[in-house]
Design a protein around this nucleic acid. Structure first.
Lengths: 206, 206, 206, 206
DNA sequence: ACACTCGGGACCTCCCGTTGTT
DNA sequence: AACAACGGGAGGTCCCGAGTGT
């Protein structure tokens, strides 16, 4: 086994903490729970992180943020038809979601709901992350407006915020209900909402 | 001082527990935190509730459920125009929400996100509560369909689920961002979505 | 064994803590050290004392203070010849002091030197205790002045403070040197100083 | 920056340790507290000192001892009137003492009271230091006896021990009471005691 | 119905000291 | 000579729950 590999040690801690917080919540997780998922000792943990809070903050920025970008932002691309891209992204995520993820919900949302009103440090970091998410969607919608694939009267910022909120709400609903049909139903409603963002075909016949 | 008033004691505990869980989370709250908000002792608490979990369950059913019904279900009425009723309810809630509520988010959502994947007893009770909520909305939408104020092709169950999810997501966004403008923006998008549920005016041009 | 005897439990803790602090210092003593001297558990300890600090404060007021009064104040009596009383008290203490006490020094002095500059709560309580001690001596010296057994030009407060300081210093010296002869020597010097407090015999030669 | 300067590193550690132990006590000070006062790392510390205890011993011998000699022994000089010299030294020290020193007490006394009964290594080293101090005073008093400025019947060793003890006790009183007037009062009594060491003027009347 | 006392373990944090490396 | 990484345990605190008494 490789001793003395500080980067790897830190990474192992972050990953173990991410999973533990995801499954038991931040407050419900003991540092021993985190350590039990690794071969790292408490001394090493406290060498890399000042305290539990800082470990939590690092999880937000070094695990949650990349996870969110990979899942929701990167697939967006830069084409002129964001509605189709968003639709495809949503379908991909809902389709590929395994049982575990389905039951546990969105890690960003979980931590947000648990910690935003408990600790300001968490709130600030999570809000920055959400803002980045909303911005990416808003920018995409703006591209669509420029390209004429999104209606002129759509407010990109407001719509992006609504979309993100709805997704978070849906993930919460899935986690609580554990009902995939319900999930699919909400997905359909979301899709029809997304379609209303496109310019209406001139409904003038002939 | 009136000693021996079991009902009042129980109620005081439920109210204190509700507020404590609301503000610090279930896992982040100690029984002593609850007791510190009352003049009740631990002996009395354990007389009324078997353990912390049962106290939590009781809060869900005796505090959260009535709160939800009062806020979201009762105002719905029985008229034939549910979209307007929902619109009015949402406006009333968003409008009257004070700073504290705004910062703390929806108590149902908070507890759901924190505990649904941690404890099955919580999940079941919270899911029942959410289901009741969705049902009430779905029933209202159905009345609208019958009355012709809601489009025929609207799926009441799916749409209700989506609406509830979106509201929960919005409350979470408000809590994290603490940005009332953002809240208003999402409200507007939600309103325009609600409007799409009404039958379209015949778009026959002049 | 008698269960449920809160007063006895509290007392056992105070006594164990007194001895532990006396022998290892406050900072050098762990709560487990205290508990190991009793059959009390940590839960019980934290029922009776809010934290280690409060336990320390209680030791000062409920153990150290009575100990000091019994040893130095009560024997003083109310006669008109305080110098003789003080002399007798000092001799009794120095004479009866066992090896253990000799090696450990004065418990009041030990705690004072260790904690006065570390924690304000300790300093205040210890200063109050010392003040009581000085006052008792000063009052006695005053009685002597009134009775003519103490010189008119003796400042009771100042002299009392000096006496107490010197005793504390002597106890510290004994503890460090572990030299009983040295202790006796200092005792003699102290005695001759005490004698100078009496009115001088008219030194008129025959 | 000059790396690799072992002597300077060692000195920095001793100084930081001296101040930390002075302010928080030996047992109350963590090695990290010491390191935080320097730009030295733990590796360097453990290169120069085997463990915390040895660091403490080195502080006694390389910081406390010179400090004591400079303050109490060097000013003594070699004249034939030690009482006046001691008087002057005491006045200088009491007069020049700043607030910090006044509140913190005598570093030698602090460490002595805290550690003498806890660790034999400390006790031995501190006792040697105190012995050196007492010896210097005793030797001075002896010089006085030879010169006729000190009474024949004064026991130099015993009186020196008493003086040192009284000073230590006074410094402890000052630290606990934080009362400069009390300090001055004790100083006056001490001065009048010192005067009694001089040969009495022949009280032969006309 | 309620109060007080107590049990024992889990929690986060810190601490002293060691080891591998440069 | 000095440094960063790490080991492992002890420290004070808190917490849930049980037991006893009224």
């Amino acid at each position: 086994m490789v001793r003395r590999d500080p980067k790897a040690t830190r990474q192992k801690l972050l990953e173990a903490a991410f999973h533990a917080f995801y499954e038991q919540g931040f407050q419900g997780t003991g540092l021993d729970d985190v350590l039990a998922r690794t071969d790292v000792t408490k001394g090493a943990l406290y060498h890399h992180f000042a305290n539990k809070m800082e470990l939590g903050y690092a999880v937000v920025q070094e695990m949650l943020r990349p996870w969110m970008l990979r899942q929701w932002v990167d697939p967006l691309g830069t084409s002129g038809d964001p509605v189709s891209e968003i639709l495809a992204t949503q379908r991909a995520i809902l389709g590929h979601m395994d049982e575990h993820q389905f039951h546990m919900g969105c890690p960003v949302n979980n931590l947000t709901q648990e910690m935003a009103s408990v600790d300001e440090g968490f709130r600030l970091r999570l809000e920055a992350l959400m803002q980045e998410w909303r911005s990416a969607i808003a920018k995409a919608l703006d591209r669509g407006r420029a390209a004429g694939t999104v209606r002129e009267d759509v407010d990109p910022e407001a719509t992006a915020a609504f979309l993100v909120a709805a997704w978070e709400g849906m993930s919460g609903t899935g986690k609580t209900s554990r009902d995939r049909n319900l999930m699919r139903s909400m997905g359909s409603v979301m899709e029809s909402f997304l379609e209303t963002l496109r310019p209406q075909p001139s409904t003038v016949p002939g």
